[in-house]
């Protein structure tokens, strides 16, 4: 210990435990994490073990449950794809162009993080319902955006937008203009420069943003239930299935479906971590 202190002035030694508080902070972190997150989550697994395999399988593959997976994962996938396209566009515009009110637009990107989901849900519904600002012009043409799966997708697009913009934006900011200049000097068109030079450098960030928006969308509840209409087999999302089973005191059934969602979140979390590691490696070029 004391040796480390003496050599601390030396150039670039690996930091050692000179600072006090390691046991205290790590102990508190692990204790708090266990009490709030790990032990409660393990309750979910223990509850599942009270079910036989047949009971579990029946609970997680009922026709209504299967329909809800299709809707939840399908709508989340479409919403995340839309967010990749428009998120890239918004990030591009914010980084590359100057325009009036840019700082306000930049701040507004985070609105879905800050606005409570229930508020987003009722206000999107008010806009898109048959008598709403937007809905009244679409309904006569037979386009219905609320109270059906379309509404689910729209709510999930709202929820997921900041994830893509905020992962792509810093990568675009750090991108080296010299590479683009070199491409242009070598005779590439602007479109070729984008697809061959810029796009490969932001692809990991785009994928990360996609995975984060998708993961968030799969678990989302508040904004969706107001606009979905919640018809069984048609527009009922998986989190709502869990609530429905809880309201019928089917705790085991609710837990089984929750475990399926939890396992899926774990897998997505691991994928996102791997993507971020890949992105760091890509971005490892000298600044």
């Amino acid at each position: 210990m004391s040796v480390a202190v003496l050599s601390a002035g030396g150039p670039r030694r690996k930091p050692r435990r000179v600072l006090p508080g390691f046991n205290l902070t790590l102990g508190y972190t692990v204790l708090y994490l266990s009490l709030i997150v790990l032990i409660p989550l393990s309750a979910l697994l223990f509850k599942t073990f009270t079910l036989s395999w047949e009971q579990f399988w029946a609970a997680v593959t009922g026709p209504r449950v299967l329909a809800s997976y299709r809707l939840t994962f399908g709508a989340s996938f479409i919403a995340a794809l839309v967010n990749v396209v428009f998120g890239l566009l918004v990030a591009w515009v914010l980084v590359r162009y100057d325009f009036f009110g840019k700082k306000v637009v930049d701040a507004l990107v985070d609105l879905p993080f800050a606005l409570p989901t229930a508020v987003a849900g009722i206000s999107l519904t008010a806009l898109l319902a048959g008598n709403g600002w937007i809905g009244q012009y679409l309904e006569p043409h037979g386009i219905q955006l609320a109270f059906n799966p379309n509404g689910v997708v729209i709510a999930l697009i709202f929820i997921g937008l900041p994830f893509v913009v905020r992962t792509v934006q810093p990568v675009l900011e750090d991108a080296e203009k010299e590479l683009e200049e070199a491409a242009t000097c070598l005779g590439a068109t602007r479109w070729q420069t984008f697809t061959r030079v810029i796009f490969p450098s932001i692809a990991p960030a785009l994928l990360t943003g996609f995975a984060m928006a998708f993961a968030r969308a799969v678990g989302e509840y508040g904004s969706v239930i107001f606009i979905a209409g919640n018809m069984p087999m048609v527009s009922e999302i998986t989190p709502l299935i869990i609530i429905g089973k809880l309201e019928q005191y089917d705790y085991a059934g609710a837990t089984a479906v929750a475990v399926v969602m939890l396992v899926f979140s774990f897998i997505l979390l691991l994928i996102i971590n791997a993507l971020q590691a890949w992105q760091r490696k890509r971005g490892g070029a000298p600044v």
Binding site: L33, G219, I242
Partner: peptide
């Protein structure tokens, strides 16, 4: 440990509520 700290972000809010019902309900 860092991954575990991030864990609650990837758990659906509904599942987050459910786990406390399973313990304290």
């Amino acid at each position: 440990l860092t991954t575990l700290v991030d864990l609650p972000f990837s758990v659906s809010p509904v599942v987050a509520g459910l786990i406390y019902v399973l313990i304290f309900g």
